[in-house]
């Protein structure tokens, strides 16, 4: 089955581990990724500056995806998912707005219909690939691992924009983890924000968000934190040291993308999953699942 993919800004310019692991796992599930030409940023980074321009960018990318004629579009980044799902929602409610944007898109020979279905990595794997297929591809069950999942805000809220799961009590990512043989631990801080969006205006507060959540997950005894958003990864994985320093906590928690975890369970090499790019202590996790031999030869 062919699925168009839109990577956004952060994944293809710095969060290579997510792109590599998505590219590595999807074909094994029978999902062929189709690249989009001429796309741009999704609009999220400029929403604070100019909401209309941000919306335009989101719609333009959707129009490009629709041009492929495919039914499904994968958005691995939470920020992109929010931006494009909001655009779909707003334009379905407001015909005039749709016309106004389509008038501009005409100059690039584009037209937005609203026909393509959008997916995030988590619901694509959970709903489209499905439990049976997901369980089948597990070659190396992650038995005995206790993991904490972090959904990230922008794929869950608001419930009016077609979020991937229940806004207040999501289960899909927990189930995805359990299908690999690991245990997803319940913890009260599950819906807490990573702080990324505050990084530009209030960096210390942003790092405090990050540090407090990491500390909580660590204290609940999780072996690792599993994420599915490049922004969240840039906080929990890339800024674990500075967030520990800001909050005064000793942090030592492996953080990885769900697709990296899935890749491990599929027995894909750590290099192909980009796991040597994670900053957090991933080797400790690999040791626990008995994969350290591949980990020591990056």
């Amino acid at each position: 089955m062919k699925v168009a993919v839109y990577w956004g800004c952060l994944i293809p310019t710095v969060q290579y581990g997510y792109e590599m692991s998505v590219r590595a796992v999807m074909p094994q599930l029978g999902l062929e990724l189709v690249e989009l030409n001429n796309v741009s940023c999704c609009g999220t980074p400029i929403k604070s500056v100019n909401m209309f321009a941000a919306l335009y960018l989101a719609v333009r990318n959707l129009a490009i995806a629709e041009k492929t004629g495919l039914d499904d579009l994968l958005l691995p980044c939470n920020g992109c998912y929010l931006s494009l799902s909001e655009a779909k929602h707003l334009l379905s409610q407001d015909g005039k707005l749709k016309e106004r944007i389509n008038n501009i898109l005409k100059e690039e020979n584009l037209q937005y219909e609203g026909s393509i279905k959008i997916w995030h990595t988590i619901n694509l794997l959970h709903d489209l690939a499905g439990e049976e297929r997901m369980r089948e591809v597990v070659k190396h069950p992650l038995n005995g691992l206790k993991l904490a999942v972090h959904y990230g805000c922008h794929i869950l809220r608001p419930s009016t924009f077609q979020p991937i799961d229940d806004s207040e009590n999501p289960k899909k990512m927990d189930e995805l983890v359990e299908w690999l043989g690991a245990k997803s631990i319940p913890y009260p801080e599950k819906l807490d924000c990573c702080g990324y969006m505050l990084l530009l205006s209030h960096p210390d507060a942003a790092l405090t968000f990050t540090g407090l959540k990491l500390k909580a997950v660590q204290d609940w005894g999780a072996d690792a934190l599993v994420v599915s958003c490049p922004s969240c990864q840039m906080m929990f994985d890339m800024r674990q040291k500075s967030s520990g320093a800001t909050t005064g906590a000793k942090l030592n928690l492996p953080v990885l993308y769900y697709t990296q975890l899935l890749g491990l369970a599929m027995d894909i090499s750590t290099e192909r999953l980009g796991l040597n790019l994670n900053r957090s202590p991933i080797d400790e996790l690999l040791q626990k699942v008995g994969l350290i031999s591949t980990a020591t030869s990056p």
């Binding site: 800004c9 293809p12 310019t13 940023c41």
Partner: peptide
């Protein structure tokens, strides 16, 4: 971010990075 998008279409160009090693 806005000026970067005007210039390149994205908030940044692909960055060099380093592995844990």
């Amino acid at each position: 971010s806005l000026s970067a998008i005007l210039e390149t279409g994205f908030v940044q160009k692909p960055q060099d990075t380093v592995t844990r090693k």
